[in-house]
């Protein structure tokens, strides 16, 4: 393989009280790739992300993130990986700049360097005009964009985005997806994107993986999955059609 992998897992498993959340997961993500991480709620996607960040200890198996073991080198992994959790929270009494300053100081970025970066990122996510507004008054879309700015502060090599488009209006979702695509192209950031907006995922993902009850049931480029599941000739297809094929007929 010519491009190096940024994430590699082997038989990664997690059990909670005899309930399997993630079941022998083996997959890899190449550098500069947008990987659409699909699956129903409760399939184990968030647990997988937490294990890759070293926040949850796997029951079995191993993972390598940027060539590092997240359980042993959690701090180094977290320096390289930006994680935007589902329903990310903010300190409502801080404004956008103060929020970013706090995250910058946690990342050891200070002074003029931090100020320059914050200005640049606010511009990038389109929040320059609301820089001094309290985050408590932000709309959902603005909060998600501020969340993206926060994870970009550390100049990450990889982004883990857990349902970033959840609860956004269609326009907000499109803008966010475009932003992610832009980051991928301009900064060569690999992205692990979990989302239910299949149409948006189809637009920007290089490959997708479908996870159901802890197992990765399908993985590959959207065309190859379409060939495999729909056996199509040249006809139009959508990711949604493919996705639904993995569930028994209702």
């Amino acid at each position: 393989m010519d491009t190096p992998t940024v994430i590699e897992t082997k038989d990664l498993s997690k059990e909670y009280d005899h309930q399997v959340a993630v079941d022998h997961l083996t997959f890899s993500i190449r550098e500069g790739e947008i990987f659409g991480f699909l699956g129903p709620n409760g399939a184990g996607k968030t647990t997988t992300l937490l294990m890759l960040l070293g926040l949850t200890r796997p029951s079995k198996g191993s993972a390598l993130v940027c060539g590092l073991d997240p359980m042993r080198k959690a701090k180094e992994v977290k320096r390289r990986v930006g994680y935007l959790p589902e329903n990310v929270g903010f300190y409502g009494d801080l404004d956008a700049v103060e929020s970013l300053e706090y995250v910058a100081s946690l990342n050891g970025i200070r002074g003029t360097e931090a100020r320059g970066k914050i200005e640049e990122l606010l511009e990038l996510v389109g929040l320059s005009e609301d820089a001094r507004k309290k985050v408590g008054a932000f709309s959902r879309g603005m909060k998600q964009r501020l969340g993206i700015a926060e994870v970009l502060l550390k100049d990450p090599e990889v982004l883990f985005l857990d349902e970033p488009t959840l609860g956004l209006d269609p326009e907000g979702a499109v803008r966010l997806i475009d932003l992610i695509s832009q980051l991928n192209q301009e900064r060569n950031i690999s992205v692990l994107l979990s989302s239910h907006h299949l149409h948006q995922v189809q637009k920007i993902s290089h490959r997708v993986g479908i996870m159901i009850t802890g197992k990765m049931v399908a993985m590959g480029s959207i065309e190859s999955l379409a060939k495999e599941k729909l056996g199509l000739g040249g006809r139009e297809y959508s990711l949604e059609e493919i996705y639904m094929k993995y569930f028994p007929e209702v």
Partner: peptide, 17 residues
Amino acid sequence: RERAHGTLIKLVSQPIY
């Protein structure tokens, strides 16, 4: 409070112990 506001996970996913 951090947990209820969803800021705790953000805090621990920063490169700090």
